[in-house]
Structures are given as C-alpha cells and as structure tokens.
C-alpha cells in the first residue's frame, strides 16, 4: 500500500481526527485558563467545549455531541459574553498573580491529577456481564419519559427557579444601587 493510500485508511483517519480533537480540547482549556483578558478565556472555553463534543462523538453518541454544542457553546458561552460586554469594565485585565500562589495552585492541581491517575490505573475495570447495544434516540426519549420522568421534571423546575432567581438578583442589585 502506498503512503498516500495509507493516509486515507479509515483507521488512520480516525486516529488523526482523535488527535485533532484532543488538541482542540486541551488547547482550548489552556486558552481558557491562562490569559488575563477574560474575553479570550470565554473564546477558549468555546473551543474546548467543541473539542469535548468531538470526544463524545468518538464515544459513540452524536446526539450528546450535538447537545453539547447547542447547550454549552450556544447556551452558556453566549450569556457569559453578554455579561462581560453589558457591564462596563468586566473586560479589564486584572493585576498579575504572585508567583508563590501560582506554585501552590499548580501543586494542588498536580496532586489531584496524580491521585486520579493512580485510581484509574489501579482499579480493575470490569465490563458488565450483560450489555445491550441500544443506542437509539427513540429509546433515550422513552427512558426520559418513563424511568427518569421524575428527575426530568425536577431538572425543569430547577432551571425555572434558577432563571427566576437570576432575574430577581440582578433586579434587586440594581434597585439597591440607585
């Protein structure tokens, strides 16, 4: 097989796509964390969430990947951008962090990473004995309206209460200021 044909082998293409997805995810996360201008951080968050949607695609669920883009990139990043742009100096850059504090934060994060990794590699993961391969959206909808009906309704209630609370908090702070 010539190298060019080798490049279009589905397996190789899948590997390259997966590497691209990971670069998108972690590159976006790094952009989200480090710049001191907050607008860059939001754009990095959007990039990273798009990468996570790609990871979901590789995990076999296009529906969840689409929901990720719809809810996170569309529904969470946009309000953050609105909040930044509507209140005047939110986009101002903050003073630099002290180096010792940065080092402590890095040490804490690395501790978390090491502990998580040791758990991941020491646990003998076992596949469930009986598995069914039903990935269809139809059965997902049936589950949401039968077995997980109560959770579904409670989540709707939580969302409603959260949005009403957000409106009341924003309104109250404006009234108490003037």
């Amino acid at each position: 097989m010539s190298p060019l044909q080798n490049l279009f082998d589905p397996q190789v293409l899948a590997e390259v796509g997966f590497a691209g997805t990971l670069i998108l995810t972690f590159g976006g996360a790094v952009i989200a964390i480090f710049p001191r201008n907050i607008l860059y951080s939001v754009l990095g968050l959007a990039l990273s969430l798009t990468g996570v949607a790609g990871v979901f695609l590789y995990l076999g669920s296009p529906f969840i990947a689409l929901m990720e883009i719809l809810i996170y990139v569309g529904g969470i990043c946009i309000p953050i951008v609105f909040a930044i742009m509507l209140s005047k100096p939110l986009h101002l850059t903050l003073p630099k962090r002290h180096l010792p504090k940065l080092g402590l934060a890095l040490a804490a994060a690395l501790t978390v990473f090491v502990i998580l990794n040791s758990i991941i590699f020491k646990t003998p993961w076992q596949r469930a004995a009986v598995t069914n391969d039903d990935w269809s959206i139809t059965s997902l909808g049936i589950y949401l309206l039968t077995r997980y009906e109560l959770v579904f309704e409670v989540i709707s209630l939580v969302l409603l209460a959260a949005i009403m609370g957000a409106i009341i908090i924003a309104e109250y702070s404006r009234r108490s200021q003037s």
Partner: peptide, 28 residues
C-alpha cells in the same frame, strides 16, 4: 462498562441542565 448505554447519556444530559442553571445563577 455499563450494561445499558442509554443511562450514561441521560446523566450527561442532566449534568448539562444543571450546568445551565448554575451559569445563570452565577452570572447574575
């Protein structure tokens, strides 16, 4: 690992819903 591949997807959907609520409250 899971015996039924739909349950994890449903949980992920719930996490997204909670995250949306949390973002609204946090922004206000």
């Amino acid at each position: 690992l899971a015996p039924d591949p739909l349950i994890g997807q449903i949980y992920t959907l719930f996490i997204m819903g909670i995250a949306a609520a949390e973002a609204a409250i946090a922004l206000s």
